[in-house]
Structures are given as C-alpha cells and as structure tokens.
Amino acid sequence: MLTTKNLGYWYDRPENSLFTDINLEFEQGQSYAIVGQSGSGKTTFLSLIAGLEKPRVGEIDYNGHSINDIGLTKYRQQNVSIVFQSYNLLTYMSPLNNLLTAMAVTKSSHQGNQKYAKDMLRKLGLTDEQMTKNVQRLSGGQKQRVAIARTMCCDAKLVVADEPTGNLDEENTPRSNPTLPRNRPRTKSLCDHCYS
C-alpha cells in the first residue's frame, strides 16, 4: 500500500542527514510502530509519509503511484489522517465542530453527520457538554481524545499517529487504542519513545 524508496532527509546540510536510504513497505490493515530516541527523526519520517513535506531524496509511493504525482494536498485529503502529538485542533471551535470540519475537508462519507461525530466523541469519553464548548477549555488528555476522534471520523486508509496517547492517563489509553483499529482495514503507523 505505502512504499518508501531510498528515503532521505536533512534540515540544513546533506552531510547531517537525519536518515538516509529508508526502504519500507506498509501493508493495508496492519499496524506499525516506529520507535526511536528523541531527535532520531521519527516525527520527520511520519511527516514525509503523511505528505506534510517532500523528502530531500527518494520517493514515496501510495498504491503504486508517487504521492508527488497524486498531489500532496489531495493525498492528505483523501488518504491520510494524522494524530499529532500537540493535538493540532482548531482552537476557536468546539470538539464537535473540529470533527465536522475535518469530515468536511476530507469529504468523509459521514460529512455533516453530527450524530456520528457525537457518538465518536462519546466513545472517547467526552460528555455532551464538553463536546460543544471551546476546545481550549478542555484538558490535555481530552484534547488528545478529540484529535483521535477527528482522525477516526475521516475515511482515510492510512492513519499516522505521532505519540497519540502521550497525554492520556492510564484509564483512557486503552479506550483510545481500541478506537484506532475499528473495523476498517486501515494501516496505522504509530510513533513513540517507548514500546508500551
């Protein structure tokens, strides 16, 4: 489904490459974890496969087509969903509106379906009151759950999660994890500092 060919990236100079010659293949319906030390390039690698940035060298193919040829915007919109470590929610909206926005932007099959979005938020432990107030009034863990719910509302085949449960307590972590696989054959690429 997703293949990286000789992928390499550096920030300032090629001799200071963050990584080089990464050749990986991700299959549909499988979960993958990318583990490494802090600063090893895990988030950068996820950004590349999520189409947030172009690699310095190498190529990423999605279903046999270069994501550059598909167009990064279209690729992100139709195929990828990202859970960021820092939530990346729209701060002037409620959790519900965040979900509805993501569903509209990605043209989800549930686009405009408030009930679906609310069910998803409820499933992740948010009350009806919490889902309609501004996201900035939520705790870090609650924001993280909204970010996860947003990902799950979209129809993306590829879910990229960068430390998705980093801000969740022990009680809520398992609640999120079963949500991520759901019933659909998605490919999940997770990235974390530890193996837990």
Binding site: T73, N88, T106
Partner: peptide, 14 residues
C-alpha cells in the same frame, strides 16, 4: 499560522 497548518495538514485547499 497554526490554524493554517492544521487545515493544510487535513488536506484543505489553499
């Protein structure tokens, strides 16, 4: 910028 980045990351058109 942050909001723009979020929307772009979701695949919103410029």
């Amino acid at each position: 910028r942050y909001e723009i980045g979020v929307l772009l990351s979701m695949g919103e058109s410029r």
